[in-house]
């Protein structure tokens, strides 16, 4: 009997399910950052708003990268449904803490898929996901750097504006290129 699955599909079927879940998670993350950007915009925090708009775009790019990886290798992808986006935040600090938690959850999810790749001997997908391991390290660093600013700067009154201006620097500091 021919191995028709393998002839058509490079990715292990169980890993395919996990990758489709990851697509959904990246889409959810993109939408969550868009809500954060909107909150910042409304509250006059222009640099933070810009940061989260860009963050939202990046998450969509992460999603598309997986999307193409699956389709290029014979799998099927499903355009994700995104729901339950939180738009209520008490402070900018809360937003960055939420962002860090979200990134940590994604890091764990990526690591989990890699463990499964090893179980299923899907080395191609593991290799593909290594890019995400590094990316997640950088994402976490960026969010931690933002949170550190709240420890250093008193955000009452004009301090919050001062902090907002520093936000444009955190990405470059975290990812020197």
């Amino acid at each position: 009997m021919k191995d028709l699955v393998r002839q058509n599909l490079l990715i292990h079927v169980d890993i395919l399910d996990l990758l489709n879940k990851q697509i959904k998670q990246e889409a959810q993350s993109s939408a969550a950052y868009l809500a954060m950007a909107s909150w910042c915009d409304h509250n006059g925090l222009v640099y933070s708003a810009e940061f989260f708009y860009e963050q939202s775009t990046e998450e969509r790019e992460h999603m598309m990268k997986i999307f193409h990886f699956i389709n290029d290798n014979g799998g099927t992808t499903y355009s994700p449904e995104v729901s339950n986006i939180n738009h209520d935040f008490a402070s900018l600090e809360e937003i960055f803490e939420t962002a860090l938690d979200q990134e940590i959850a994604i890091t764990k999810s990526i690591h989990n898929i890699i463990y499964e790749c090893r179980n299923k001997r899907d080395l191609t997908t593991e290799n593909f996901l290594q890019w995400y391991v590094k990316e997640q390290m950088e994402e976490e660093q960026t969010m931690r750097r933002a949170l550190e600013l709240f420890d250093l700067i008193n955000t009452e009154n004009v301090g919050l504006r001062f902090l907002d201006e520093r936000i444009k620097e955190i990405r470059e500091e975290a990812n020197p290129e």
Binding site: L4, N8, L9, V13, L16, D17, N20, G74, G75, T76
Partner: peptide
């Protein structure tokens, strides 16, 4: 079914 169609059917069921 092609494999793609079988995968789509599997997804629909799941």
């Amino acid at each position: 079914f092609s494999l793609c169609q079988l995968l789509a059917f599997r997804h629909r069921l799941k």
